[in-house]
Simulated assay, not measured.
Amino acid sequence: MHRIFLCVIALLCQIIHADVQSLKQKITSNYPKLSFTDIENTPIEHLYSAKLDNQKVYLDESGEYLLTGTLFRLKDQKNLTQEASEQNKPSLWSALPLQDAVRIVKGSGQHKIAVFSDPHCPYCQQLELEINRLNDVTIYVFLYPLRPESIKLTQQVWCSPNASYAWQRLMQQGINPTASSRCSNPVQNNLELGKKLGFSGTPVIIFANGQYNIGLLSSTQIQSVWSEHGL
């Protein structure tokens, strides 16, 4: 009986592997210019997960249809897309060029988050108010002007004598910086980095364990992540 059970498991593994391989071959043959990686099964039959341009996507078994978005499991409301992202990006934090971010320290600074933010993004402005409620945190703000009208503004923030002060005044009080935008700044590097990481919107919040969230989180939600993961 034990031998039969092992044979069944081995056969199932072969079938699953064959399905993934078949999908890879279809995509490579039909769409050679698209570079899909990390093609895997999902809990949903005939649906596969993959990465395209560093973004999580889903494919059907024919390789003809692509879905983007978040996959939830209803029974426990678990975000399976985010869980997979956390598993696949354990080194995201260590890869961030923190020297290219505006550094803001509150209290002891023991907790750490990085934020990709656009000053003309209303959700980024709301996030600033939530961050202002946090204690003992170091925030690394990557100036990420996805809107063209934000480019000069972010450059002026960086070129200000006190960039962290200029950023907080801009986001919390609506006071524009007065510094020139003509200094060496990392704004273009940040845009290229965000594009490489697949950040097509703002804000993006990255935690020190590599977990990240695209969109607004409340101060309570941020603190819950710290507590849950010992950050």
Results as ranks from 00 to 15, higher is better:
residue 1 M to A: 11
residue 2 H to P: 00
residue 6 L to A: 06
residue 7 C to S: 09
residue 8 V to S: 02
residue 9 I to R: 04
residue 9 I to W: 01
residue 10 A to H: 00
residue 11 L to K: 00
residue 13 C to V: 11
residue 13 C to A: 14
residue 23 L to W: 03
residue 28 T to C: 03
residue 28 T to H: 11
residue 29 S to T: 12
residue 31 Y to D: 03
residue 32 P to I: 12
residue 37 T to Y: 05
residue 38 D to G: 02
residue 39 I to N: 02
residue 53 D to I: 01
residue 53 D to C: 02
residue 53 D to S: 06
residue 55 Q to G: 01
residue 58 Y to H: 04
residue 60 D to N: 13
residue 60 D to M: 04
residue 61 E to W: 07
residue 61 E to I: 03
residue 64 E to L: 07
residue 65 Y to H: 06
residue 67 L to Y: 13
residue 75 K to N: 04
residue 76 D to W: 03
residue 83 E to Y: 01
residue 84 A to Y: 03
residue 89 K to M: 09
residue 91 S to H: 14
residue 91 S to T: 15
residue 92 L to V: 12
residue 93 W to D: 13
residue 95 A to Q: 15
residue 96 L to E: 12
residue 98 L to V: 13
residue 98 L to D: 01
residue 100 D to A: 00
residue 101 A to K: 01
residue 105 V to A: 00
residue 106 K to N: 00
residue 106 K to H: 03
residue 108 S to Q: 15
residue 108 S to D: 15
residue 111 H to P: 14
residue 111 H to D: 15
residue 115 V to I: 15
residue 115 V to N: 09
residue 116 F to D: 03
residue 116 F to N: 13
residue 117 S to A: 15
residue 124 C to G: 14
residue 127 L to M: 13
residue 128 E to Y: 14
residue 133 R to F: 05
residue 134 L to Q: 05
residue 138 T to K: 12
residue 138 T to I: 11
residue 144 Y to D: 02
residue 144 Y to E: 00
residue 149 E to K: 06
residue 152 K to V: 11
residue 152 K to L: 02
residue 156 Q to M: 07
residue 166 A to V: 06
residue 169 R to T: 05
residue 170 L to Q: 02
residue 171 M to R: 07
residue 173 Q to E: 09
residue 182 R to M: 06
residue 185 N to R: 08
residue 185 N to K: 06
residue 190 N to V: 09
residue 194 G to N: 10
residue 199 F to K: 10
residue 200 S to I: 10
residue 202 T to V: 05
residue 204 V to K: 10
residue 206 I to T: 08
residue 207 F to N: 05
residue 207 F to E: 04
residue 208 A to R: 09
residue 213 N to L: 07
residue 215 G to P: 08
residue 219 S to V: 11
residue 219 S to W: 10
residue 221 Q to H: 05
residue 223 Q to T: 15
residue 225 V to P: 09
residue 226 W to R: 01
residue 226 W to V: 12
residue 229 H to C: 04
